[in-house]
């Protein structure tokens, strides 16, 4: 029969320093990797919206027109997925939790110097009048063109998985992708049925893919 087995530990504890902190009066020190809150280098942000679309609790709102990046810190679950997917790596997580509050508030971060310049509006070239003869004439050229584009797109896709690929047969050249591209890496010419991507400028954010009405673009 072992009575008061624990007394040795208890008495030892009585004469030791307490392990608890008088929190929050005594602040806690967090380790370097501690996931407390998301910080953004707004200067580098290209407002592509990847974080917004991949945030599991949908706590982030990116407004390209206003140049604001908004996070609801009360909704954020500190999973760090936004910084994983950020093409510009301008998001990172830092120690220090969100202060408690009585209501959920958004914290809005504005881009200094206003919003990013909007991409150029699509060049509204007058649609060539329907001239069946002319079209017939150019038919061969166009076919050759589009084929060349197609192969180009395919090869670009195979070498670099982070650049969008276009299934040119389904493309209607609506230019939505180009208009939504945050870095203007896409060139679309409806008249000449040209779809080009500048691999060096492209950040692989996937904006074009998500905006494509025909779902002919793919990435990854």
């Amino acid at each position: 029969m072992a009575l008061l087995t624990f007394s040795k530990t208890v008495l030892k504890n009585l004469f030791s320093e307490p392990e608890t902190l008088n929190y929050p009066a005594t602040p806690r020190e967090y380790p370097e990797r501690s996931r407390g809150h998301i910080e953004i280098d707004i200067e580098n942000c290209i407002f592509c919206g990847m974080c917004m679309r991949n945030c599991p609790p949908r706590a982030i709102t990116v407004d390209r027109a206003k140049g604001t990046w908004t996070i609801n810190r009360f909704d954020c679950i500190q999973c760090n997925y936004c910084s994983e997917v950020c093409p510009k790596k301008c998001l990172h997580i830092a120690p220090g939790y969100c202060e408690p509050g009585v209501e959920k508030v958004d914290s809005v971060i504005e881009r200094p110097g206003g919003p990013l310049p909007m991409p150029k509006p699509p060049v509204k070239k007058p649609v060539p009048p329907k001239a069946p003869a002319a079209e017939d004439k150019k038919a061969d050229e166009k076919a050759a063109d589009s084929k060349a584009e197609d192969t180009k797109a395919e090869t670009s896709g195979s070498t670099n998985p982070n650049v969008p690929r276009n299934d040119i047969d389904n493309c209607v050249f609506c230019t939505l992708c180009a208009r939504n591209c945050p870095v203007d890496a896409l060139t679309v010419n409806r008249a000449e049925k040209v779809w080009e991507v500048d691999e060096d400028t492209c950040v692989g954010c996937g904006m074009c893919v998500s905006n494509c009405p025909k779902k002919c673009l793919s990435i990854g």
Binding site: V10, L11, N13, L14, S16, E17, P18, E19, T20
Partner: peptide
């Protein structure tokens, strides 16, 4: 207080 210190708490 003593109980807390026996349990390594500030108390």
């Amino acid at each position: 207080k003593i109980s807390a210190r026996m349990q390594r708490r500030v108390g």
